[in-house]
Nucleic acid binder design. Structure first.
Lengths: 230, 230
DNA sequence: ATAATAGTGTCTGTCAGACAATATGAT
DNA sequence: ATCATATTGTCTGACAGACACTATTAT
């Protein structure tokens, strides 16, 4: 252990961070949570939420990201999965850095963000320049969501625990970026048997109320796709 | 930068490593490269090849893994992709550690390993206990290969640049863990148009020689599967 | 010719998308 | 009744797996 410490210290100390791509759904748009950096580097630029890993406090990087989510999003019980790790001497002007990036999906109603011009949900289809390599991270996150979304119940993580089939279809359409055929969608949802009725109905007035469903299990993969984008 | 350095130094220094799951094909088996650890911790146990990230020397973790591959496998021009990052205070008895894990695929003929009882290619279906969380990493690597293999040309990375359709089918069968139907396989290979003839033929004697093919492009994803295991 | 593997053709059930038709509840 | 949306049914082409068949070369 001593020789490791000294070996690292001889070179410059790596910066160890976690970043998270928080995605949600708002009236037919896939949105990402961004904030304006208050300090250098990239002061004033939009960036993904993140923070340094605190070795003494965080038992691992997942714990670190949970801490970040608690403080910046104010939500618990969110779906989180690791995306990838980005590293190198070029991505942060302060020196060699490594960031473990995560994806978090949640319904907009679970998001508690401060009302500030420096924190915003922005449409993923029209984004500003981002700090560091965050544009790349976000691009990778969207690609992952699109790819995995077609084969899993992942898009349902963008909805409240109870939802109608139309809402579910919309979530898939937004994630996959294309319209889906309703009858094919419902047939497959039925075949895959990953939903259960809640018994109650949606209460959007002045039209026929739809049945509410919830996921039987957590996120689950299929051997075929719901919708395209395989 | 100063405040970061001191913030980290206040807590214990994280150990930063890269590990690689080197997979190859040997007479119908998917094999993984392992070595016996010469030193504590886990001295004598089998482990994945890996090493510390050298911040002064490696421009990023990919460069670090290339360095490890050069020194332990003696091969260049190998297919490498990032798998995931494993971190925490529990996985290494020396303290909080973080390891970025990679997958490398190559034909056995490209592998130059020292002839030593401490370095071996072992069948992935019957493995010994592994050091650290390397069993988990290996399990994740195999799952990734299986999942992605069904939808891509990834299994071809286990073969030499030129191969016959039978060899390609075998690679898929081993990766996916199931027999494939020859006519369906060939039909799809034809449909997807990712191969080109080399003109020459295989020269395994005493039977009908097969045509040799190579990939047109690098690894490429499909919208449908070759074989199951989606 | 025979052995052995390479490579092709066809049949059949399943599944996808398209689109039309029906059901239901609020007004 | 009417509107708007939910929900179901049917038709058709694409595709997968099964399996039998043909082709080609070394011996």
């Amino acid at each position: 252990m001593k020789e490791i410490g000294s070996a690292l210290r001889k070179e410059s100390l790596p910066i160890l961070t976690v970043d998270v791509v928080v995605l949600t759904l708002d009236n037919g748009q896939l949105q990402v949570l961004l904030h304006r950096r208050p300090n250098a580097p990239f002061a004033g630029a939009w960036a993904l939420p993140g923070g340094f890993v605190r070795v003494g406090e965080d038992s691992d990087t997942l714990a670190a990201i949970q801490r970040v989510l608690r403080s910046k999003v104010g939500a618990t019980n969110i779906y989180v999965e690791q995306l990838a790790t980005y590293s190198g001497e070029m991505r942060d002007p302060r020196g060699w850095s490594l960031s473990v990036a995560y994806i978090a999906l949640l319904p907009k109603s679970d998001l508690q963000i401060v009302d500030s011009p420096d924190v915003a949900l922005l449409d993923t289809k029209s984004l500003p320049e981002l700090a560091f390599d965050h544009a790349l991270i976000l691009k990778d996150a969207l690609a992952r969501l699109r790819g995995k979304g077609a084969y899993s119940t992942l898009p349902a993580m963008l909805l409240k625990k109870e939802f109608t089939l139309s809402e579910l279809q919309l979530a898939y359409e937004v994630v996959l970026g294309e319209k889906l055929d309703t009858s094919a969608f419902r047939r497959k949802v039925g075949d895959f048997e990953f939903l259960e009725k809640t018994g109650s109905n949606s209460s959007e007035l002045s039209k026929r109320p739809a049945r509410l469903f919830r996921l039987k299990n957590d996120v689950q993969m299929f051997d075929r796709t719901l919708g395209r984008s395989g």
